[in-house]
């Protein structure tokens, strides 16, 4: 595994994506550059509207029509994603990169059994015999921890956590290399959350998958991820090993996110929110975009935008660090 991890599977290079709403430009991603290595789990955290989901769907070439890639490239296994078309795109989606969507609880068809939904997905993309398909479904359900005898159940007969796991199994139907999990546990209770995250993590061990985990909750990252990327207002502000970032955060925004999380059993720690609200991306603040909410801002911050600077462990975009 360790050898594999040095090969990048996904390469974002200077990626800039804008949405155009009423002829107004809204820059959702601003010069994002980083690599995702084979076999790793990378977490992407940030508040609502920081561009995490845009980053995820850009990998599947599913950006909405009113958006445009202004600059930069996205490569998956050296294949340029934005240039994929027709049959190539169809084969790329789901068999190379699969996604677990935000509201997975509602992602299943209520009038079909989970088995028939999975068969449909598999047969749309491959020519397998019925027996092979059934075998694969049994294996997949087993992997995600659902008794294969439940394959003939309808979604309403499953609990929330089980539905989520079925959605994960469906994402695995065509043996993708990369899974993008977009807020897989938001608004799910803590018991389900723990079991879903455990399922995802087990997949990496069993199948050697690469996983991009998108969430606003930094508290689930320690257990799940190898590396962590922190985004703010469409920019990458800090990236590095998860343990380093959580134990020793460099960027003030990462520090603030960590202070906002309640931790069980520590009643001395007072949770502190981040004052203000995320900026409107159609008219972002000048200079460093975090400066209006930053406790450490000084003269330089409003005037010029800090670049992402490589450091010993990871990279940080903050004038305080340089």
């Amino acid at each position: 595994m360790s050898k594999l991890r040095n090969q990048p599977l996904v390469e974002f290079d200077n990626l800039t994506v804008s949405y155009f709403i009423n002829k107004q430009e809204l820059r959702a991603l601003n010069r994002i550059s980083f690599h995702v290595f084979k076999g790793e789990i990378i977490g992407i955290v940030g508040e609502s509207g920081c561009g995490k989901t845009t980053l995820g769907i850009s990998l599947l070439k599913m950006l909405p029509e009113n958006s445009r890639i202004l600059e930069g490239t996205i490569k998956v296994d050296s294949v340029d994603v934005p240039s994929l078309k027709g049959e190539y795109l169809r084969k790329y989606r789901w068999s190379k990169v699969a996604m677990i969507f935000q509201s997975a609880m509602n992602a299943l068809d209520p009038v079909k059994t989970i088995q028939s939904q999975m068969i449909e997905t598999i047969l749309q993309h491959s020519k397998a015999s019925k027996e092979e398909v059934m075998n694969r479904i049994v294996t997949l359900l087993d992997i995600v921890g659902i008794n294969p005898s439940r394959a003939t159940s309808y979604p309403h007969e499953l609990s929330g956590g089980m539905k989520q796991r079925v959605v994960i199994a469906m994402a695995l139907c065509l043996q993708p290399d990369l899974i993008i999990a977009d807020e897989p546990t938001t608004a799910v209770d803590v018991v389900y959350q723990a079991s879903i995250l455990r399922t995802l993590k087990a997949l990496r061990e069993k199948l050697g998958l690469t996983i991009i985990l998108i969430s606003h909750d930094i508290s689930i990252m320690w257990e799940m991820t190898d590396r962590l990327a922190v985004m703010y207002a469409g920019k990458l502000v800090e990236i590095g090993k998860t343990q380093n970032i959580i134990l020793n955060p460099q960027h003030p925004y990462t520090k603030a996110l960590l202070n906002a999380v309640p931790v069980i059993g520590q009643d001395q720690k007072k949770i502190v929110g981040i004052p203000g609200s995320p900026p409107n991306l159609s008219s972002p603040p000048s200079g460093c975009r975090f400066h209006p909410r930053c406790a450490y801002a000084f003269e330089k911050c409003p005037t010029s935008d800090p670049p992402l600077q490589e450091r010993k462990e990871g990279a940080v975009a903050c004038w305080l660090i340089s």
Binding site: A194, S195, R198, I218, S219, W222, I246, L247, I264
Partner: peptide, 16 residues
């Protein structure tokens, strides 16, 4: 205790 163990810890594993 189960609820406690499922609650995410900032540093460390959940032990459900």
């Amino acid at each position: 205790q189960i609820l406690m163990s499922a609650s995410p810890k900032l540093t460390g594993e959940t032990d459900l």
